[in-house]
Amino acid sequence: MQTSTPSSTQKKVVARSEWEKKLSEVEVNKRDLNKLVMNYLVIEGYKDAAEKFSQECGLQLDTDLESIQDRELILNAIQNGNVEEAIERVNDLNPEILDTHPKLYFHLQQQQLIEYIRQGKIARALEFAQEELAPRGEDNPEFLEELERTMTLLAFEDNNQSPVGDLLHPAQRRRTARELNAAILTSQSQEKDPKLPSLLKMLVWAQNQLDDKMSYPRINNLATAELVDNEDTTL
């Protein structure tokens, strides 16, 4: 005899074939897709890719290529650990940005400190922390905690052992770059977030909502978008 918990008896089960049929009925406009891709390339600062893509799919760029390139150069500088260059470029582009975004400026300096530590320039790092970052912490106590976390990097020989080792990950540079990118875009009256990630977030949220109500082939890996059968749906 088959037994089942009350909750699973209430769940509706949708078989893979039916699910796929329903999905195939949804029409997505090619042009909309292209626009989404273009929006991602422009906002993330991929100048060459945006230019090529616009030529290939015949979409007009609603922003000038030069300004994408400005951001690309600035963001690359951060990704390569060259914070000083990034700061100089931002100041050339718009000297107001760092004067009006103290938190962003702090994060750039924090990133600079991390880069010194990564390069093993311990004396320079200490001097920099004292001269540049400590005064920021005095002005804004909320920065102090982050500063202390960053300084903890100096306490561990092996960064893999360090509780704050994540600061040395590429993701940290990306975080800083993204914050800077958003500030520049806002200063130019442009959107600061690409649409594609929001759509994917929406997909994940929708699936989570749906999970309570039914069993269906789910997308677990956003990069492959593969439909994964639930035990119930393989029937």
């Binding site: 100041n91 004067d99 400026y105």
Partner: peptide, 12 residues
Amino acid sequence: RFIKNNVIGNKT
């Protein structure tokens, strides 16, 4: 330029 890049964002 050196002075500029030092003072922007930096009250001290």
